Amino acid sequence: GILVREFASLYHSFKSGRGSELDPLPIQYSDYAIWQRRYIEGSVLENQLSYWDDRLRGVSPLLLPTDYLRPSIQSTQGSSISFCLEDSLSQDLIGVSKEEGVTLFMLLLGV
């Protein structure tokens, strides 16, 4: 909920040409990361590592099946499907996307 509210606030501010209306954070992520790194040292770190060593001892890697063998070198080659919509349907979809405040692409992706 927090992420959605803040994203919406930032979006509306950006859309209307204003600066961010969000309050500055009392602590930055880098501060938290430093605190966490200092906390997880010595015996705390050793306890955490030994816990997971014990829990994962003897567990083999999970090999999930795939729908086909993946090539060793990936490519961006693919295929496309073209189709045409009737003008009335196209206009209706554009109307719905405007009512919902989304692009036609996002509407069709959601559908």
Rank of each mutant, 00 (worst) to 15 (best):
I27M: 09
Y51N: 10
Y32G: 03
F7S: 03
V4Q: 10
E21M: 00
R55L: 11
L69P: 09
E46N: 12
L104G: 08
Y11C: 04
L10T: 01
D87W: 00
N47S: 06
S20T: 09
C84Q: 14
Y32Q: 09
S79G: 13
A33Y: 04
G1E: 03
Y29I: 11
D67G: 12
S13W: 05
L63Y: 10
G1Q: 05
L89I: 07
R55Y: 05
L45W: 06
L56T: 15
R38V: 07
Q36T: 12
E86S: 05
E21N: 05
R55Q: 15
L49G: 02
A8R: 04
S97E: 07
D54N: 10
Y29T: 07
E86M: 03
D53M: 03
L62T: 14
R70Y: 09
S75I: 01
Q74C: 06
T76E: 15
P65H: 08
V4P: 00
S97M: 11
L22F: 00
E41K: 13
I27F: 08
S60H: 10
L64W: 03
E100P: 01
D67S: 13
S90K: 06
M106L: 15
L25P: 12
L104N: 07
K98G: 04
R55N: 08
G17Y: 15
P65M: 08
Q91E: 15
I2Y: 04
F7K: 05
P24W: 08
G58D: 13
Y29D: 06
D23P: 04
L3F: 01
F83C: 04
Y39T: 12
L63S: 10
L56C: 14
L22C: 00
L63D: 10
S20K: 03
S90M: 11
H12W: 12
T103W: 09
G42E: 09
S50P: 01
L62K: 15
I2S: 12
L45A: 14
G101V: 07
P61N: 12
S16N: 15
R37N: 05
S43Y: 05
Y39V: 11
L22K: 01
I27P: 01
S75T: 10
I81N: 12
P26K: 01
E46L: 12
S60K: 08
L63I: 11
R18Q: 15
Q36F: 14
P65N: 13
G101S: 06
R70W: 11
V102Q: 02
T66F: 10
S20M: 03
S88I: 01
T76I: 10
G58L: 10
C84Y: 05
S97F: 12
I40Q: 01
I73G: 09
S9K: 05
